[in-house]
Design a protein around this nucleic acid. Structure first.
Ligand SMILES: NC(=O)c1ccc[n+]([C@@H]2O[C@H](COP(=O)([O-])OP(=O)(O)OC[C@H]3O[C@@H](n4cnc5c(N)ncnc54)[C@H](O)[C@@H]3O)[C@@H](O)[C@H]2O)c1
Ligand SMILES: NC(=O)c1ccc[n+]([C@@H]2O[C@H](COP(=O)([O-])OP(=O)(O)OC[C@H]3O[C@@H](n4cnc5c(N)ncnc54)[C@H](O)[C@@H]3O)[C@@H](O)[C@H]2O)c1
Lengths: 218, 218
DNA sequence: ATAGTTTTGTGAATAATTTCACTATAAAAT
DNA sequence: ATTTTATAGTGAAATTATTCACAAAACTAT
């Protein structure tokens, strides 16, 4: 029922609703939302139905109420604190990005083994020695971590994160990590994202499929 | 038949085979590959069967021959040139990354509207004024582009890319782009990747589903 | 040679996901 | 008030994707 694809669509609906709301819209119909997100209207209604979300026949959905419900389902009512391990290219890009706060995500700290990366300035996200990851995560109840280290280091970083109580991971290293099933790993492989596009272009398939989103990647 | 998910799995098989090959392995069985990639052995065989790839009963697959076939199918025999538009956080991280060349991907140039970003040094990837995108792309037969500009600028950048003959796009801006169906857009939404993990952790679902890959995101 | 074993290749079965199509209902129009 | 119309909600149908299960082939050992 509440499968991964469906959750990703709910997150998309939520983002689209945010935009509509900030544009001053008050209500929305299943087909507006479908259009904004790139799915069919029945898909939207089916997804909502699965989570017991209902609107008004002929009246559509009240955006505020809908956002409220989605945030509740998606656990976005409280701000989530996240740590990054690896303050290199990707890690630094993520730290500089201003878009997380808006979505209720707070990058609490970054950890690295390279002392040249350490950084501590009021207002900035601190970059700390890797040894402090465990204490920091425990003290701050961190449950989510981002792996942005070279692939050879990724497994040991994962193990350390798990031992620090982190259970949810976004992994940018292009390798398959081994873990107990008591954690959730979301692998993001940017090279693969590019290679996928290359495949469709090289084979002249750009006409058949116009667009892919995360959820079409299973 | 040859759906997106299947292609992404083929790309994964290819990557796993690369690793195995560089470790000195010569042949591989469907279940080794399945294990390396995180799918079932029948899935591997079914995927291969779909593309007419065959191995030897009881002998598995010769890694070199298999890589050859996969590279042919995936269009990885010739190096692919790619441009980036937006030399900010993400754009810069991608330019500094050394892992693309290994996969036959060459970042040919980056384009930006901010003159402070312009850069031209022998050996480095040049950062050029946006106005030059069209000529550069035409002259270098660029077919693939990466959008790494703020969301408000993404649509106009896409339109420009399309007018420059670029047909395959990886888009990092978190908005739905509108385009003719004569192009292929792969949307990468990093905030969503994080939010997905947050959902599973906040709802205590980390036990049920241990790992997701791109292809499970549809 | 022959028997035994392992692994592929694939049609059939199953499972998962999406779309269809229709009913119920609320709002708008008359 | 009554009719019309637009849209939600949802089982059923269709489609798509995955797994099963087993015959065919090829290697190994005797
Ligand atoms: N940069 C990109 O565009 C890009 C693209 C695709 C994939 N990736 C992947 O993302 C990951 C990070 O890439 P990057 O370009 O940011 O790398 P990077 O080399 O720029 O940064 C890696 C950082 O990790 C630190 N580090 C190394 N070992 C560590 C350890 N054991 N514990 C803590 N920190 C450690 C290093 O000091 C460095 O600061 C890599 O796995 C890479 O393959 C990056
Ligand atoms: N940095 C991240 O970690 C991150 C995370 C999630 C999403 N994103 C998304 O990725 C995109 C890029 O993010 P970023 O952090 O790199 O942004 P950034 O602001 O650091 O960089 C954007 C770059 O694009 C350039 N630019 C602006 N308008 C342009 C135009 N019309 N043509 C060409 N260049 C233009 C700017 O000069 C700047 O160099 C954004 O859409 C952002 O939402 C980034």
């Amino acid at each position: 029922m509440a499968n991964k694809k469906c959750i990703i669509r709910l997150l998309r609906y939520k983002n689209a609703l945010h935009r509509l709301h900030s544009l001053g819209f008050v209500k929305v119909f299943s087909d507006n939302l479908a259009d904004a997100v790139g799915v069919t209207a029945s898909q939207v209604r089916k997804d909502f139905s699965l989570f017991g979300i209902c609107g008004n026949k002929r009246g559509g959905y009240q955006i505020e109420a809908l956002l409220e419900k989605l945030n509740h389902i998606l656990g976005k009512n409280e701000q989530q604190k996240v740590v990054i391990v690896g303050g290199g290219n990707i890690g630094a890009a993520l730290m500089k990005y201003k878009g997380f706060e808006k979505e209720g995500v707070k990058i609490a700290a970054c950890f690295d083994i390279d002392p040249a990366k350490y950084h501590h300035k009021e207002g900035d996200i601190p970059v700390l020695p890797l040894e402090e990851l465990k204490n920091f995560s425990r003290a701050n109840h961190i449950r989510i971590g981002i792996i942005a280290v070279p692939d050879i280091a990724a497994q040991q970083v994962l193990d350390l994160m798990l031992s620090a109580g982190i259970k949810g991971i976004v992994n940018f290293a292009p390798i398959r990590l081994r873990a107990s099933s008591d954690c959730f790993i979301n692998n993001v492989n940017l090279v693969l994202e590019l290679e996928t596009v290359i495949y469709f272009i090289v084979n002249g398939l750009e006409k058949s499929i116009a667009e892919i989103h995360e959820e079409q990647k299973s």
